[in-house]
């Protein structure tokens, strides 16, 4: 996956994203993962953090939205290739002249955009149900952070999907990977609360940098340098993820064709 492919196939990516969103609107599990679960977590966190003051409400809105983004990436984007396999369309997609990773990129784009709706809904819950006055202290930087985070999440998802396909053993741990990332990435509380040895692990996770950027742009007084650094880290991780994903897709398709196991678990 590289910038040339993204530019050449941008229309394909958008069509795949549109079709994915339409299809997933009918799936109860996906609706729960991208919408209901983050809202329930937001409600819980708003009650739990009530004593911290109204300024934490926006922190909860952003943090619970990030939990939705990660869960969607893990369960929906992670299974984006397997889902085609289960529905018997994988062989046809692989046989298309369009590179397969372009299609998965479009599917991941749909998942990430869908998940962001939970952040919007969380905003309304906090504002209308709890009566908080929510303000984003640096709106322009926040919008840019959202854009960069979307790219970072999609790129990360491009690694997860082929890894789950090639290593069913890893996919068995899918359920156990959800909450540790909530913990390690500081979505709803600072990672300083965790034991010191976990900090380097947090630094290696792109969602952590997304949380730093998004929380930073909504919290008054965050120095711009901190936000720029988080953007830089997301950019670096995205490039690395895309390079690794490119290799993984080649390897996956080669193995599937050589072993004739494309549609088999």
């Amino acid at each position: 996956m590289n910038a040339r492919l993204l530019l050449k196939y941008w229309r394909t990516i958008l069509v795949v994203a549109e079709m994915t969103i339409r299809q997933q609107l009918m799936d109860g599990f996906i609706i729960f993962t991208v919408l209901f679960q983050p809202i329930i977590i937001a409600l819980l966190a708003l009650w739990m953090l009530k004593g911290k003051g109204p300024e934490y409400a926006i922190f909860v809105v952003v943090g619970s939205g990030l939990t939705g983004l990660w869960s969607s990436l893990l369960f929906i984007s992670g299974n984006s290739i397997n889902a085609e396999r289960w529905s018997g369309t994988l062989e046809s997609l692989v046989a298309l002249p369009t590179p397969f990773e372009v299609i998965v990129f479009g599917k991941n784009l749909a998942n990430v955009i869908q998940s962001l709706s939970s952040m919007v809904l969380g905003y309304f819950v906090a504002a209308f149900l709890f009566g908080y006055d929510l303000t984003i202290s640096q709106p322009l930087y926040f919008a840019l952070s959202i854009f960069i985070s979307i790219f970072a999440f999609i790129s990360f998802g491009l690694i997860i999907a082929p890894v789950f396909v090639m290593n069913p053993g890893v996919r068995h741990w899918q359920n156990a990977m959800e909450f540790p990332v909530y913990l390690l990435c500081g979505f709803l509380f600072p990672i300083a609360l965790l034991p010191g040895w976990t900090t380097p692990i947090s630094y290696l996770l792109p969602p952590y940098w997304a949380a730093v950027a998004l929380h930073g742009t909504t919290t008054p007084g965050t120095p711009p340098n901190e936000i720029f650094f988080a953007w830089g880290m997301m950019f670096v991780f995205s490039v690395i993820d895309l390079l690794i994903a490119s290799r993984l897709f080649k390897l996956m398709l080669y193995k599937a064709r050589a072993d004739a196991t494309l549609g088999m678990e």
């Binding site: 966190a45 739990m48 359920n175 959800e178 909450f179 913990l183 509380f189 600072p190």
Partner: peptide, 16 residues
């Protein structure tokens, strides 16, 4: 999974 969930809410609760 349940233990990670427990740790998450314990840390969130103690932060709160």
């Amino acid at each position: 999974m349940p233990l990670a969930q427990m740790f998450f809410f314990v840390f969130l609760g103690t932060f709160a």
